[in-house]
Each structure stands twice: as C-alpha cells, then as structure tokens.
C-alpha cells in the first residue's frame, strides 16, 4: 500500500497549495448546483399530492440533515487520525468542520420544525429522530466549546477528538431511529438498496441540492482550513511569503 499520499496529506503546506488551485472551480460548481437545485425545487416542481407546497422545504431540509451527519462522521475520522497518527492537519480539519456542521444541524432542525407545523400539526415532538438530531447539535456545540476552553493546542486536539468519538455513536442512532422506534418522522425516502419513493421530477432537484451542499461544505471547509493553516504555521517562511505577498487568495 502506497502511504506516500497519506503522509503528503499530512503536510499543511502541501494542502494549502493544492486547495488553492481547486478552490475557485469547486466554488463555481457549488454555486451553480446550489442555485439550480434550489430554484428548480422551489419553483419548477409540482406540489406533493398530500403535503402540497410545504414539501418544498425538503430541498433544504434533507441536504442539511445528511450533511450534519456526514460532517460529524468526518470529524470522527479526523479524530481517530489525530489520536493515532497525531497528524496536525487532521486536528485542524476537526476544528474547522465543527462550526459548519453545527450550522447545518441547526438549519436541519429549524427547517424541519417549520415543515412540521403545516404537515404534522406541531413544531416539535420528542420522537427518536428529532431528539437524536438535537443531541447531535449539542455534541457539535460541545466540541466547539471544548476547543475554546482549552488553551493548549495539543490538549485541545486530544480532548475534542475524544469527545467527537464518544458522540459518534449518535450517528447510527439517528439513521436507524425511524426503524427502531415508532417515530412521527417518517422513514427514508432515499434508500441505499431500494428505489427512491419519490417521483423523478422531484427527485432530480433533490439530488442536485444534496450534491450542491456537499460541494458547498467542501468549499467552506477549505476556506476555513487555509486560514487555520496560516494561523498555526505562522512561524514558517512559506507563510510569511504568502502574507507578505498580500495573501491574495
């Protein structure tokens, strides 16, 4: 197995240079997909036979819910790499993912609540799905708070990695909550092994929105990571060169 790529990835400088080249293209693609997915879904799809026009919230709710979970899983992987390999970049990634994941989790909860009112008849219910998503938000906030509370970088890295890993058990709970318990929240529309239970004219904008949000996450993560790298590597020559050059991008 060629570990060179993995070890190269550990170099903040290498990541900074590579990400700088990819960033503009990813950003353009993300913007295009986001605009088309959301506008298509909002204005160019038919209403749902049962829910009417309120279902259009799905184009925000589902992507952000998926991402809130996926980002946390990524944080957990970064946590493992931090603890086992002590890779600086992994800890930086964990730190930078947290606020993005938290904001998406919050958005998923809020859009869900607003969607719930006209459909279920309530803003909130303590069923397994909603409760576990709320716990996810608390976990995110906990990781962010812990980071801020610990002054020493290395200690903070270890502590945040451990907290993230302790909380990762919540992710399968979220995923399977609608199967294990009787929940008000319905089961999955997009399934891994079965046909999606959504008409194609609604499905396409949804898939595009999901892709858009994943790309958007990648772009803003890279933005945060690059700044974090500059911050942590501020004593190196290459950072001084970049900063002296006016730090264009």
């Amino acid at each position: 197995m060629n570990w060179t790529f993995f070890h190269k990835l550990g170099s903040p400088k290498w990541f900074y240079e590579i990400s700088g080249k990819w960033l503009p293209w990813l950003a353009i693609l993300a913007a295009l997909l986001m605009a088309s997915g959301l506008i298509w879904g909002l204005m160019f799809t038919p209403p749902d036979y049962l829910q009417g026009n309120s279902y259009r919230i799905i184009f925000l709710h589902v992507p952000t819910a998926f991402l809130a979970q996926a980002i946390y899983v990524m944080m957990a992987c970064a946590g493992v790499v931090t603890l086992v390999w002590k890779m600086k970049l992994a800890d930086m990634a964990l730190k930078c993912c947290a606020p993005i994941g938290a904001s998406f989790c919050l958005l998923a909860l809020v859009t869900g609540a607003i969607w719930g009112k006209p459909t279920w008849g309530t803003w909130w219910v303590w069923d397994a799905r909603l409760t576990s998503m709320l716990i996810l938000l608390f976990l995110y906030m906990g990781v962010i708070a812990l980071r801020g509370a610990i002054r020493n970088t290395n200690t903070a890295a270890k502590a945040c990695a451990i907290l993230t890993l302790v909380g990762v058990i919540n992710i399968p709970i979220i995923k399977f909550s609608v199967q294990w318990w009787n929940t008000l929240h319905q089961g999955a529309t997009l399934k891994l092994t079965e046909k999606p239970s959504m008409a194609p004219e609604m499905l396409w904008p949804l898939l595009i929105s999901i892709a858009a949000f994943y790309l958007f996450f990648t772009v803003v993560l890279i933005l945060r990571l690059r700044t974090e790298i500059l911050d942590r590597e501020r004593r190196t020559k290459w950072v001084h060169k970049i900063v002296a050059a006016g730090a264009g991008n």
């Binding site: 749902d48 008000l184 319905q186 959504m198 008409a199």
Partner: peptide, 17 residues
Amino acid sequence: EELLAKHDENYMPPEVQ
C-alpha cells in the same frame, strides 16, 4: 389529548396519485 397527522416517505405529484 393531542392529535398529529403522520405521513409516509412517498412524494409524488397529484397527477401521479
């Protein structure tokens, strides 16, 4: 005391329905 509507995971336009 409290009654909520529950819907399933299917989404389709009215014509398909």
